[in-house]
Design a protein around this nucleic acid. Sequence first.
DNA 1: GCGCCATGTCCGGTGAATGGACATCCGGTG
DNA 2: CACCGGATGTCCATTCACCGGACATGGCGC
Lengths: 255, 255
Amino acid sequence: MKGCETANSPDRGRTVISRALAILGTFTTDRPQLTLAQICRQTGLRHATAHRIVGELAAWGALERKPGGAYVVGLRLWELGALNPRALPLRVLAMPVMEDLHAATRQHVQLAVLQGTDALVVERISTAHAVPIVSQVGGRVPLHASAVGKILLAHGDETLLDTIVGKRLSRFTPATITDPGELRVTLAECRRTGVAIVREEMSRGTYSVATRITDSKDRVVAALSVIGADPATQRLIPAVVVAGRSISRDLRSAR
Amino acid sequence: MKGCETANSPDRGRTVISRALAILGTFTTDRPQLTLAQICRQTGLRHATAHRIVGELAAWGALERKPGGAYVVGLRLWELGALNPRALPLRVLAMPVMEDLHAATRQHVQLAVLQGTDALVVERISTAHAVPIVSQVGGRVPLHASAVGKILLAHGDETLLDTIVGKRLSRFTPATITDPGELRVTLAECRRTGVAIVREEMSRGTYSVATRITDSKDRVVAALSVIGADPATQRLIPAVVVAGRSISRDLRSAR
DNA sequence: GCGCCATGTCCGGTGAATGGACATCCGGTG
DNA sequence: CACCGGATGTCCATTCACCGGACATGGCGC
């Protein structure tokens, strides 16, 4: 490999594929549907170009056109995404255990994996009467302020931690850890105990505990958490750990 | 110059995007991971071309490289696919009701939407002790031999039915409907009653009933089914209908 | 009517994509 | 160990698909 890491950042992509991917990248949870004009503005592409690319993507099923004329991500992409081993296959294994954990605790149960510099929520079981929480399936939560995030960060690459710290630890509540040193101590604790505890660090009135999920080679591939409304949520640590190890075991025997 | 069409591909897509999509399209539930060489064989692309495109897709996160060298669909695509309104958002609304239906019946519960000429299973709740079934989340089931499929087909475009009938109705069991006329009668019945009943038409020993899920404009957007092990599964029709209407109502108020 | 904006279509110049050739790395085999 | 077949990775001159300015269409409000 040559020193060719200057590929993407300087300007917007020159290759057709990068443009197509840029178009796909404009779709987010906040903006799940876009018109052609919006896509043009977002990507900076000429409308003729965007029109052609979007047309091709839509013809294949990567995008779909709604009656109004707006585009949404196509079902075909969902189908494709379902093949990712850390998403749906993991979920299929984890779901029964998550149900058990939910039944035993009556609290939100979350499953997340590492995606870039965030934790991606792959599955969640909620109760209508439990604490309202912001996260959603398919959404992201910060690594330094969530229980699942801390687990993933603690077992992640050293450079990942540097990246996270490097772009400053954003504050959500007074309890959010924003000091790099303090974060490192906390993460070391996570590695030692295998458990992460978060007390109102992401939003007031929510407490959560998380544990790791490992694959057959003992690599941490996901994190499992329970989210409650009071500090006593800590008492659920044993339940979470049991569930986490159960999923890890299923994962081991499955592959 | 042009004399290089060689053997396999008469006139494959010549645009870059179509090639990239062709590469993505080679990933299926049967072949969730592929090496570069396999991708080349599948798509008929030169390895230099595939190498470059795959590299670009992987850099963006549409594909991921496993330790062994094989590629899998990237988590970023799952994240994108989660934005499709007929996939995850629908699922979020349907899930609580599906749980209820599952609790009340102790049978498999399935949610499917129309994708091309198949029914795509978007969500499923299973029990370890229930009938083993072939379908899986992210997988497809035939429109003419499954309960969810019949519902979707009955309310689909007229041309869709022509297409399905046109490429012959494949037989899975002696009970599978393979006669176009008989199928049309069955579908008319589905439209009239709002319920589809399937008795061992897809696999022996499985019986299922399905109902439709409609959006705020009364368009059928999905189908909900319960799958049991004996003909008495029909007694669950009222439960399925109630659940289906409940989801439809939630769908109406949500958007 | 008229302007405004979004979408859709066309065509000539040109630079990104192609694919043949070469290089490297690995596991199997005589 | 030398050899081989197959897979991955890299390079570069040729050329053809892509780009984007320009024009056409269609809806909406004034």
